[in-house]
Simulated assay, not measured.
Amino acid sequence: MTRRPKWVVGWWRQDRGSYTLETVICVAVLIPFLGLLAAYGLAGIFDNSVEGAASSAARAASQAADADIAQVRGRTAAEAALRQDDRNCTSRSIRIDTSAFSAPPGQAASVTATVTCTIPLSQLTVPGLPGSKTLTASAISVVDQYADRK
């Protein structure tokens, strides 16, 4: 029988404790990665909420009889949509373009609503994460072509 070198015989016994070290390293890398993944997922959900608010604002504004009422209804609908989804924007902007209300009846017209919402990244599951993300969405809704416009 041939004798094996000493390093070949017990090489697996020298590996004690490495599983613990590997686990600690993996967890240290995995937890921040999962936190960022969750933050991006929540940013997508916030983005959908902003798009929904823009759609609601455009739809509500397009059903108004004149431009002034359309502005009020559009802003109210956007605010209600953001509040319903519990979106706490640090700053928000709601623009309703009602210039198409000046078109005569019988001519195609549409209303455009743009909603901008800035959210702090610390609100996205990772407390203490610096910075913010600005989400913007626009939506267009057609005004009834034959309705009386003022």
Rank of each mutant, 00 (worst) to 15 (best):
R59P: 02
R75C: 08
S122M: 07
I31M: 15
A60F: 06
S110G: 10
P127T: 06
I94K: 01
L121I: 13
P120Q: 09
T20S: 15
I140N: 06
A57M: 02
L82W: 05
S132H: 11
V142M: 10
R149I: 12
T114K: 07
E79R: 12
A64R: 09
R87K: 10
T98R: 02
I69M: 12
D148R: 11
L34A: 15
V72E: 11
R75Y: 05
I69P: 05
A60M: 10
L30D: 13
T2W: 00
A113C: 05
D15W: 02
W7K: 07
Q14C: 00
K133W: 04
D97F: 03
A77D: 07
T20M: 12
G131N: 04
G44Y: 10
Q123D: 14
A108E: 03
I94F: 01
T116I: 05
L135S: 04
E51A: 15
Q71E: 08
D148V: 14
A108Y: 01
T90I: 15
R95K: 07
W7C: 09
I31C: 13
D97Y: 02
L37I: 08
R149E: 10
S18G: 05
A78Q: 09
Q14I: 00
P5F: 08
T116G: 05
Q14N: 09
S91H: 10
I94Q: 01
S91Q: 13
S55G: 15
A58V: 08
A28N: 03
S18V: 06
R73L: 12
T90M: 09
S62Q: 10
M1A: 10
I140G: 01
L42N: 02
I94S: 01
R75D: 11
A61Q: 07
G74F: 01
L135K: 03
V9T: 12
V142D: 13
P104A: 13
I140H: 02
I31A: 14
Y146F: 12
S110P: 05
V27D: 06
W7L: 13
I140E: 07
C26D: 04
I96V: 08
S110V: 04
T76G: 01
R83H: 11
Q145S: 05
